[in-house]
Nucleic acid binder design. Sequence first.
DNA 1: TCTGGGGTCCTAGGACCC
DNA 2: TCTGGGGTCCTAGGACCC
Length: 402
Amino acid sequence: MKSPKIIFHIDLNSFFASCEMAEDPELIGKPIAVAHDHPLRKGIILSPNYEARKFGIKTTMLVRDALLLCQELVVIDPDMKLYEQYSQLFYEYLLSITKFVERASIDEAYLDVTDKASTIHPLILAEQIQKDLLEKFKLPVSIGIGPNKFLAKMASDMKKPLGITVLRKREIDQLLWVLPIEDMLGVGKKTAPKLKMLGINTIGDLANFTDVELLKRTIGEVNTLSLREKAWGIDDTFVDYSNDDSVQSISHAHTFDHDLYDPVIIKKTLKVLANAVSYRLQKRQYRALTVGIQIKYADFHQINRSKSLNKPVQNEVDIYSIVEDLFDDLFVTGDLIRLVGVFANRFSQDEGKEKQVSLFDDLTKIEKENEIQKIILGVQNTFGKDTIKFGYYERGKKDKNE
DNA sequence: TCTGGGGTCCTAGGACCC
DNA sequence: TCTGGGGTCCTAGGACCC
């Protein structure tokens, strides 16, 4: 019997807005929101602070509607570079606590603090982290503590801002199962109504739903298996502390000020986007074996077209020539277009940048488990879809041993 | 409430090969 | 003239997350 892990999920509260307030103390106490306030289209709210939330302002709300709720709302243009800098400070601070840190996104991270439990109580450690981040960087965080990533993440959502919440496996019936199904990580706008049609309104309903075949037909096999396990508080994924910054795809898209008919302007935009994609491929020393375009029409209907190549590409001329061909094949005079995008995926790496896989020498138990996880992931990445089945098989085995 | 941009992973059908 | 199955790759689309 393995002793349970102790995982923290640390969530930066209202992150973009918090960065702005940290930079400009005059904003403290005022309702503010970071938002793309598009001059002609309607901008949407990316990050309201808690003062703004009191007025009912929420993420993804239109700026115009937010201003109706609160006239004195301070709307701030996003400064992604600034947020990246704060995110880096946050990450570096966490590394001073433990090396087992996974940067899950710009504003959240997982920590495996199992090793620390012998020297410091997790709650004391969480309080210290929360206090430090607030004092050093003026960043409020919520911390969830659980035996795995899923429970830690669900816990950090329970108390915001500046919450610390513990979610133990034996408490899931009282704390997790009572939550509405749409609050579950992995259940979005499409899946929630499907589950409700089956009478599943809470996470507990999902955990105790017996007709698994019906569930598979409704939301798919993989979804069914992973959501049901999570509803029971089971999640075997590891905190990936490799600090691996590789990505599977690179894309850029642009929404026009007005919907457009004019293929000349659209192509110019595609060229800029192809250029941006090329630049980032070069920076990462990637070459792409697939290049594609994305088009969103005025009615929001969206299509993608892509092409697989025999020889991987990187420079903007090669990329744009594929993009232009794809667009020419698709565009019909009279089409009214809202957005175009360019994407690249299936990467190969330039010579001399292959990463060394670390050996198993002198690794702690946690490190070993993580290395195994990484290798399984690596096999999946290298050999493609088929081995994903292998990955699930492995996970299935582990569950039985629990 | 007429809805941004950058990602991840899963599903499914068809072509092609053995 | 009619008859299989398994595996991989490509492509398009869907769902979700921050």
